[in-house]
């Protein structure tokens, strides 16, 4: 388990989000400190993915606030009330928040190495040489050094997702978001991706992991957040969550998800 030094990287307070009349997030508050891995679990439709997408403002939230490294994301405080951040301001915030997508979302027209250098060169204005150096090192760490010149279509799903993780890491983010990173994979490919994620958790990266893999959550996460109906129903240290489920509903969820 990670050593946390207590500095909050992510602070969410009173977060609300509706799609039309359908309220998906009904007052979420959550703090993630540096080095922590927090797994967000819960049944489908509980708002987990929407919560994750509000953190980097891919989904604009309605009320409440999301702060990353102390800075409010998505809105600018103004005397007349808050205004949506400009495209440029928002992009600057997102540089520091890595995201791994359910369906990988690699750029199919670019090779693996180009996928990893694109953001470094285009967004962080690194030189191509420096970008490739880091990209190769990160690629090595996810075990794909030999695939640098492949196109995504030439890789297995598990390899593509490891490239997806590497792409996020190349931006050297202070916070990593995983959106059901293994749920689009064939069962035999899940392990290689979870192994990379576990390694990142062990390196004390700050991570928010939306997942259906409860065994992984139990092994890698410091804390478990249980969501249902757009609310957080439990936010507990991992062991406590699994050994002493705080409610019969959660106990039933665990039983159904873990089998037996």
């Amino acid at each position: 388990m990670a050593e946390t030094d207590g500095i909050p990287v992510l602070q969410i307070a009173g977060l609300h989000k509706s799609f039309g009349a359908n309220e998906v997030l009904s007052g979420i508050s959550l703090t993630v400190r540096r080095g922590e891995t927090v797994a967000v679990v819960g049944p489908s439709g509980s708002g987990k993915t929407t919560l994750l997408r509000c953190i980097n403002f891919l989904v604009p939230y309605d009320r409440g606030e999301v702060r990353v490294d102390g800075e409010l994301i998505g809105y600018r405080e103004a005397p007349s009330g808050r205004k949506m951040q400009s495209d440029r301001e928002l992009s600057r915030m997102r540089q520091r928040i890595g995201m791994v997508f359910q369906r990988f979302a690699l750029f199919p027209h670019k090779t693996v190495i180009e996928n990893l250098t694109e953001g470094q060169v285009q967004v962080l204005a690194r030189t191509r040489g420096a970008a490739e150096e880091l990209a190769l090192r990160v690629l090595e760490s996810v075990g794909l050094a030999d695939k640098a010149s492949c196109y995504p279509a030439e890789l297995s799903g598990g390899q593509q997702q490891r490239v997806g993780i590497a792409r996020a890491l190349c931006m050297e983010p202070i916070l990593l978001l995983f959106d059901e990173a293994t749920s689009a994979l064939d069962p035999e490919l899940v392990g290689e991706v979870l192994a990379v994620m576990r390694k990142l958790a062990d390196e004390d990266r700050t991570m928010v992991v939306v997942t259906h893999e409860l065994r992984f959550a139990r092994e890698a996460a410091d804390r478990i957040v249980f969501m249902e109906g757009g609310r957080i129903h439990a936010d507990l240290p991992t062991e406590q969550f699994f050994t002493a489920p705080p409610s019969p509903r959660i106990a039933a969820f665990l039983e159904a998800s873990l089998g037996k």
Partner: peptide
């Protein structure tokens, strides 16, 4: 998710 991935690495 192509646009989202591009935005998530900070592209305008």
């Amino acid at each position: 998710d192509q646009m989202e991935a591009a935005r998530s690495i900070g592209m305008t």
